[in-house]
Simulated assay, not measured.
Amino acid sequence: MADNNVLNPHPPEFDRFLHACVGKDRNGHAVTLLSALARLGLDPWKETAELVTMGHDEAQVRLEALLAQFRDVPALASKHGKIARDLSQLLPEEPASGSLKRVTSTVADEHLGKSGAIWVVLAIIFLLFQMFMVGGSGSGE
């Protein structure tokens, strides 16, 4: 049977959070959190998955820091703390659906994958260094 998430691979639990309005821009248009995160150069779904894996307070602090960087909505300059607090209430509590579990586990695996790649590179450099030292010391011709 075909996967139901082919056309929309993002967890539906994120919709309420990402489609929440963070304020109006200088032209009077409503700006969603999804748009704000994208304009900051972040992947909104990946960022949301990371926020879900954090504790509530830590997620609120991270969200507040992100909103403080966003300059397209003038009201955020003074209200980013309150808006972050309100938005953090919209985050899903636990990964209930399969797609949400998949996204949050992918985020956790990505962090482990990056550190694993660093160790592999360091091991290769160490081996090359050892080969250079052994090969260089034995050739006294």
Results as ranks from 00 to 15, higher is better:
Met1Tyr: 08
Asp3Phe: 07
Asn5His: 14
Val6Met: 11
Pro9Tyr: 09
Glu13Val: 05
Phe14Gln: 02
Phe14Asp: 02
Phe14Glu: 04
Asp15Ile: 04
Arg16Val: 11
Ala20Phe: 04
Val22Ile: 14
Val22Gln: 08
Asp25Lys: 08
Arg26Lys: 14
Val31Ser: 05
Val31Cys: 04
Leu33Ala: 10
Leu33Asp: 06
Leu34Val: 01
Ser35Glu: 14
Ala38Pro: 01
Gly41His: 09
Leu42Ser: 13
Asp43Asn: 15
Asp43Pro: 06
Trp45Lys: 05
Lys46Ala: 13
Thr48Ile: 00
Ala49Asp: 01
Met54Pro: 00
Gly55Gln: 02
Asp57Phe: 02
Ala59Lys: 02
Leu63Phe: 08
Glu64Trp: 01
Leu66Gly: 11
Leu67Trp: 05
Leu67Ser: 09
Arg71Met: 13
Leu76Pro: 07
His80Glu: 10
Gly81Lys: 15
Lys82Cys: 07
Ala84His: 06
Arg85Pro: 00
Asp86Asn: 14
Gly98Arg: 02
Leu100Asn: 02
Lys101Ala: 04
Thr104Pro: 01
Thr106Glu: 12
Thr106Arg: 08
Val107Ser: 02
Val107Asp: 01
Ala108Lys: 09
Ala108Glu: 12
Glu110Cys: 00
Glu110Pro: 00
Gly113Met: 13
Lys114Ile: 11
Ala117Trp: 13
Ala117Gly: 15
Trp119Arg: 08
Ala123Leu: 15
Leu128Glu: 14
Gln130Pro: 00
Gln130Asn: 03
Met131Phe: 15
Phe132Glu: 07
Phe132Ala: 12
Gly136Leu: 10
Gly138Gln: 11
Gly138Asp: 03
Gly138Trp: 06
Gly140Ala: 06
Glu141Ile: 01
Glu141Tyr: 04
